[in-house]
Design a protein around this nucleic acid. Structure first.
Lengths: 168, 168
DNA sequence: GTTTTATGTCAGCGTTGTTGACTTTCCAAG
DNA sequence: CTTGGAAAGTCAACAACGCTGACATAAAAC
């Protein structure tokens, strides 16, 4: 990767379109791998990626409201509602009317919801762990740094929300 | 990132579930940013991401066959066919019957197809360039390494196909 | 106490993925 | 030269998951 130091010490990158295109393709192919294992499991349950995302974030923040989930997932409430309906009908998620504000619904994973989320998460974590192992610790640091820089500022906010209780 | 050296010199990574989950969320949020700019442009043309992917890989390998595109994109021919039909009807892609093997169709971008591909690619490359600039050269190297490790071996093959004429 | 805002639900539509059945074209092996 | 099979395309139906619009209800604001 071509780079030089300015007299001021700032690192400059000279990035060809070709290098950037390879990065774009890497994202495309890697994302396919990233979702492949959960997708296989979801098929067995007749669920899709949207259900996985909902399970993931409900698991991360039990009792979260529909509205909060909405802003994290970046879809319309109607779209999320259909997904939640399926999950509730399947007994994977429980929706409790808010005590302070009865308009709100607080979302929790049921026992079987927790089990499925674990199954999905384990498969995806194993893929991630394997990739991290192959790549090595400095690569992982770089990976995370570039991904964070690629996010929309608004989304980065959601990402960093739970970061405190994390790895650094 | 926790890591130690074994007496043998191999680097071991101790990765908590929490660290891996953050990596998973980073992929999720970053991919949203990654596709956000092209999605906005595609909306104006009443096209979707599937069309963008087809344009990208036809642009990368002009004259590629439908079958080759199929194995790269990993969708069914029926699904790809609908996308190609739209692109051909819109005058963005040209399909030429093969000379050596007349069963094959070779795909090329038209002038306006090239223009749209450029517009999409430029938007996406700018996002990528910005992220690379923010993260710095070592981070970029790590990013690419982890992404490649995350791919399915079969997909990695497609990725490396055009790598020779690339950056290393 | 009526209006406005927030939240969630129901109905319907578009894109893009899927499978299955079928036809046409054409290369190549027998 | 015929036939088997690969490549490409079409039609139909369906599922997942985005979207908009219309609407009910709860809470807040006036």
């Amino acid at each position: 990767m071509a780079d030089t130091q300015t007299p001021g010490g700032q690192t400059l990158l000279f990035l060809t379109d070709e290098q950037l295109r390879k990065g774009i393709e890497a994202m495309f192919f890697a994302y396919r791998g990233f979702t492949a294992d959960p997708d296989r499991i979801l098929d067995e349950y007749r669920l899709g990626r949207a259900h996985h995302r909902a399970l993931h974030f409900i698991s991360r923040a039990p009792g979260t409201t529909v509205n909060n989930l909405l802003s994290i997932l970046g879809v319309t409430k109607q779209s999320l509602n259909r997904v939640l309906r399926t999950l509730i009908d399947d007994g994977l998620v429980e929706s409790r009317v808010g005590t302070r504000d009865k308009r709100e619904r607080h979302l929790f994973l049921t026992e079987s919801g927790t089990a499925l989320e674990q199954e999905l998460s384990t498969a995806q974590r194993e893929r991630m762990r394997q990739a991290y192992r192959e790549a090595g610790p400095e690569a992982v640091q770089g990976f995370r740094t570039v991904l964070e820089a690629m996010m929309d500022p608004e989304l980065r906010h959601h990402f960093n929300r739970a970061k405190d209780s994390s790895d650094e």
